[in-house]
């Protein structure tokens, strides 16, 4: 399959990329990893007139801890997140997530910025970032602005990014001691989008009381969903089989799946419930390690 024609632009700096976006308007699109965009172009479902390839802009791919945040450059490849020791040890939920995105070859090109900015509710990172309470750094003509992840996903395939902004960084607050997280995904086969998936990040005090919990859900609604009811319920409670079961039930209530070839809506709700339970349990296990 062959993409329609377009002009190709290769800026070397972020400001240059932004002015190209401004110059070419809605007809221009950022090319990051391209692992969603290029297939869509091959099917001629996306037909940008201008592709702005940001892969040649230096210093957009990094993973580092700084000022109480994990900072990940927008152009960081999923494979690098998967193999990062920092992420594996301190943000296991992120490692879990990167590992189940598509397949190894796709992860070598796909970027975390693209995964978020594409705003596909079936993508995996949004749920994790919702659970972690991340922030998105959007860079535009007037400099950087911080968008809390809860405000980032506007509707299907639409984010809070302005047309002339580029997602340059994701910031994840470094969790306090006694924290752990996990991502559980049910997929029809390896490499598939989730039938449903749940990310949970929990912080416990010495008595096992939940200081805070974040729960994000993949592909169970038009946008990635934060299970607020479940989160609210757990905060301040001791995490027991009973409270976790109740939180899982509430998370399923927060989900708004629709029926499709991956299964009926009712099944997906049941999955959310089961996967929330599994994710919280694994998160607790990791918090206690």
């Amino acid at each position: 399959m062959i993409p329609p024609s377009f002009e190709y632009l290769k800026p070397r700096t972020v400001p240059e990329a932004i002015s190209l976006l401004e110059e070419h308007g809605e007809n221009a699109k950022i090319l990051s990893g391209g692992q969603s965009l290029i297939p869509m172009m091959k099917f001629r479902l996306a037909r940008p007139g201008w592709l702005i390839d940001i892969n040649h802009i230096p210093n957009l791919a990094y993973i580092r801890e700084e000022g109480g945040y994990l900072k990940i450059g927008g152009l960081t490849r999923e494979a690098d997140i998967e193999s990062s020791d920092l992420i594996r040890s301190k943000f296991p939920v992120l490692h879990d997530t990167a590992f189940v995105i598509a397949d190894p070859q796709v992860r070598n090109l796909a970027t975390i910025g693209g995964n978020l900015a594409h705003a596909d509710p079936a993508n995996d990172h949004p749920a994790t970032m919702l659970a972690l309470g991340a922030q998105v750094v959007a860079t535009g003509r007037r400099g950087e602005r911080i968008i809390p992840i809860e405000e980032f996903f506007v509707s299907i395939f639409t984010t809070a990014l302005q047309h002339d902004e580029i997602l340059t960084e994701i910031r994840v607050p470094v969790p306090p001691p006694g924290s752990g997280g996990a991502y559980f995904k049910v997929e029809r086969k390896v490499g598939d989008f989730a039938t449903a998936a749940v990310a949970a990040q929990a912080t416990l005090d010495g008595q096992g009381v939940c200081q805070g919990v974040g729960i994000g859900m993949t592909n169970v609604g038009p946008i990635p969903i934060k299970a607020r009811t479940a989160e609210g319920f757990l905060k301040g409670k001791t995490l027991t089989e009973i409270t976790i079961a109740e939180a899982s039930r509430l998370a399923a209530g927060d989900a708004q799946p629709s029926s499709d070839s991956r299964g009926p809506a009712e099944y997906k709700k049941a999955l959310v419930k089961e996967l929330t339970k599994r994710a919280i349990n694994r998160a607790i296990e990791r918090a206690r390690q």
Binding site: G34, P39, D53, A79, P104, Q105, V106, N108, L109
Partner: peptide, 16 residues
Amino acid sequence: LLDGRPIKSCTLLAVQ
């Protein structure tokens, strides 16, 4: 292999 990493060459532009 692109700079040593396996990638799918049907989903990358030659210019990239």
